[in-house]
Design a protein around this nucleic acid. Structure first.
Length: 196
DNA sequence: CCGCAGATTGACT
DNA sequence: GTCAATCTGCGGG
């Protein structure tokens, strides 16, 4: 079932389509999921993209077909997950920067190394408000690099269509090149994003 | 509340 | 050898 054809489009279009979709992780029979509320687009023609200088061992899955995962390790301690977009052979993907937690919040907290999780607003907002946090909460690492997102233990489900005015477009975070390219998108008014 | 330094590993030059 | 699509805690205002 290649039901992720809707991601075989340029990274910016895929990014906007991914807002509102759900990422569902299964860990030992337990479900952990969240709604995608903040993303960034990267592609081979973009100096800020890992694929800008061509295919390497690290970024190979970003050149694969749409709807697969690209997971990389950075800063010596964090993983980040992208959803591959566009055509096979063109290095393109969408970084998942934040989720609105839906299911398995206690397991998320546990995965994040937090104890005494008590569902306060502040604690819930701290679970998945950043790309490193998302991977920690959903226990995503390079073992899932290249994974097909139509299959367990990590799946993607399309959300409801959004009105254009629900999406905010702005510049990306944490990069040093192409810092003026407005390729970051988030849901307007959503309080689970990493930053305004 | 805000800004910044430190942590720590692997991939690429 | 350099540097990274980050997070956290701490110190100052």
């Amino acid at each position: 079932m290649s039901s992720l054809d809707w991601l075989a489009v340029n990274a910016d279009t895929a990014a906007k389509r991914l807002l509102g979709a759900s990422l569902i992780r299964e860990i030992d029979g337990q479900l952990v999921s969240g709604k995608i509320v903040e993303v960034e687009a990267y592609s081979q023609d973009d100096p800020a993209s890992h694929t800008y200088r061509g295919k390497t061992k690290r970024n190979a899955s970003m050149f694969g077909s749409a709807g697969h995962a690209y997971v990389y390790f950075t800063y010596g301690m964090h993983h980040c997950v992208n959803i591959v977009s566009d055509q096979e052979g063109f290095g393109s993907g969408v970084l998942i920067r934040a989720l609105e937690p839906l299911e398995g919040l206690e397991l998320m907290a546990s995965n994040r190394g937090q104890s005494n999780f008590s569902f306060t607003e502040a604690q819930i907002k701290n679970l998945c408000s950043g790309p490193g946090k998302v991977c920690q909460a959903l226990k995503i690492d390079r073992a899932l690099d290249g994974h097909n997102l139509t299959q367990p233990p990590l799946r993607l489900e399309k959300g409801e269509a959004l009105a254009a005015d629900q999406i905010v477009q702005t510049t990306r975070i944490g990069i040093s090149r192409a810092i003026d390219h407005p390729r970051r998108y988030y849901l307007w008014g959503n309080s689970f994003i990493s930053k305004k």
